[in-house]
Amino acid sequence: MTTKDLILQASLCLFNQEGFETTSARQIARVVRISQGNLRYHYPSKEAIGQQLFDQFYREYCDILETSSAQKHEVSIADMLDTYLKLFTLYDEYRFILQDLWSLTRSLPAIKKTLQLDYEKRRAALAELLAGLAAAGQLETPDSPGLFEAIISQQLFLGECWLSHSGIYFEGEPEQEIRRYLEQWVLLLLPYLTVPGLEALMEYAREHAGTFQPEFYQLIQFHFDRRPSHESESI
């Protein structure tokens, strides 16, 4: 591993634990066991390290979305959840970005510009996933085109804010944390899933037993029971 790699690795750990603003170049140099002069030789400032880590994160983020959208026309609930589980796991790996997003964009305006310019790309990728679910018969096709837009806005908002909420309120293992907020993300879709979609969601949840809260299964069953032709059935 090169010195630059060690610097990025140590910085990511410190930024995640201590926050971007409170971490100093001196701390990074101490962890890597190099002089501050050597650190500046590789990265002129802490901000340059932060930008490099963001660029690294964003490449991985875009790769996940592009791989997902290129797979097929029809998308299952399992496909979508697997994609967003990867994204939430990536968010957690670079958690300082979302936790410190406001202060980070003030220190590094290029990050704000990237997110603003790429916002429609992220909306389009999520719209493709929802359209794929509808094509597979697992999501109702809305009468109003504005419905998908509203769902997309809510899911993007949750996706960008969950780590700040988690940092204050959640106590538990990282995997539980990711699953807990993935649940909240899926709940935004729950009222619009078809019976096959609800069945597929329940199957996915059962395959990952122990990682979802009991209330999650109950909510799936509740929405299934509301379908008139399935009042006496259960999944």
Rank of each mutant, 00 (worst) to 15 (best):
P145G: 08
T89F: 03
G172F: 04
R26F: 01
E231K: 15
S103G: 08
L87Q: 15
P145N: 05
L130G: 00
F148P: 00
S164T: 12
K86M: 15
P109K: 12
L188E: 01
P145H: 14
S45Q: 00
W162E: 14
E149M: 10
V31K: 02
L53Y: 04
V75K: 14
E233V: 04
P196H: 06
R95Q: 11
A136E: 00
K4H: 07
H208M: 00
E183W: 14
L98I: 03
Q9T: 12
K4W: 02
A150W: 11
L187W: 09
F157G: 12
E149H: 05
R226E: 14
Q17G: 07
Y61M: 10
S164P: 03
P214K: 10
E74Y: 04
A136W: 01
Q52V: 02
W162D: 13
L14V: 02
Q218T: 02
P145Q: 06
F222C: 08
K113Y: 09
R122P: 00
L65E: 09
W185N: 04
E171L: 06
P174A: 07
L133W: 13
Q138I: 01
L115H: 12
L133G: 09
C62D: 11
T89I: 01
R30M: 02
T83C: 13
T194M: 04
R95W: 01
E128N: 13
Q213G: 01
Y181C: 06
T194K: 04
D92E: 09
I77L: 14
T114F: 02
A209C: 03
I235G: 10
T3A: 10
W102R: 11
K113S: 12
P44A: 00
L6V: 01
R227Y: 09
A205I: 07
H73Q: 09
H230N: 11
G167C: 08
D92G: 02
A136R: 10
L81A: 15
Y58C: 00
S229N: 13
Y43F: 11
A78D: 13
A200C: 11
L65K: 05
A29P: 02
E149N: 09
L8V: 03
L133T: 14
